[in-house]
Design a protein around this nucleic acid. Structure first.
Lengths: 126, 126
DNA sequence: CAATTCCATAACCTTATGGTTATATAATGA
DNA sequence: TCATTATATAACCATAAGGTTATGGAATTG
């Protein structure tokens, strides 16, 4: 069926995981989770140049993790759900697969959840 | 507490996602999910050379996704749960964060699950 | 039309990735 | 000791990543 399309998109996993492997790009994604943003808005928190941000956006766009719009002279970026879902799905599937260390992984996941919950309430707002 | 260690390991996310971005390495991980394996065993299904596999294993080892043992003249590789858990945790956290398209992502995840379930039952047993 | 704003593109540099073949090393076996 | 097995390392190559500065171009504003 048309779901076949997703299996073909599996080749996209390369690009998705590669896109996720850069901390600047992960930060951009987190920022975009709060809503679309322009290049300048995205560049502001970083020390790197605007062209560097544009390059990162291009990588994210190629991976399908974001898409670009047009608004006057701006080209706002916004998240797309699909590719992220593919990555999650691969990891979940892998986890199911990995019956041997299933509980080990689950325990770690619980610990990590706690760490992140603590981190989020850690005083600084952003 | 000692969980601080995980936060420092967040810098490891770069290496983990980068390791996951290569299809050969993902295949190696899937293979290792069934149990530890030697370099030659891992190399067998691929057309690439043994040194290439050794390089991939080194990348996986640097990321923390695997560790190597010593057994006679062999150095079997086996999975480690922690780094994979970090990647899952980051994506899960991101997903929670991304309230805007939460349902969109969930729908896609369900679709992907079905695809993979179908794929798994596709005749071959493993 | 001219200036400004927002962003992309070009050219360049350095380092990493993914592959190769050839060779070294370490443990086992004869 | 010599050969074999299993793996690592070296040297090399091509391409890509991630950054820079400088410049180009499109839409908006004066």
């Amino acid at each position: 069926m048309e779901l076949i399309g997703y299996r073909k998109a599996d080749g996209n996993l390369d690009a998705v995981f590669a896109a996720l492997s850069d901390p600047t790009r992960r930060a951009i994604l987190v920022r975009l989770a709060q809503g679309e943003a322009t290049v300048n808005e995205l560049a502001e928190p970083f020390k790197i140049s605007q062209p560097a941000i544009s390059k990162h956006l291009k990588v994210l766009e190629r991976s399908g993790l974001i898409e670009r719009g047009i608004n006057r002279t701006q080209r706002p970026a916004r998240l797309k759900a699909g590719p992220m879902a593919e990555a999650v799905a691969w990891l979940e599937e892998f986890r199911k697969f990995w019956s041997g260390s299933f509980d080990q992984l689950d325990t770690l996941l619980e610990d990590l959840q706690q760490v992140q919950d603590n981190t989020k309430g850690e005083g600084t707002k952003t």
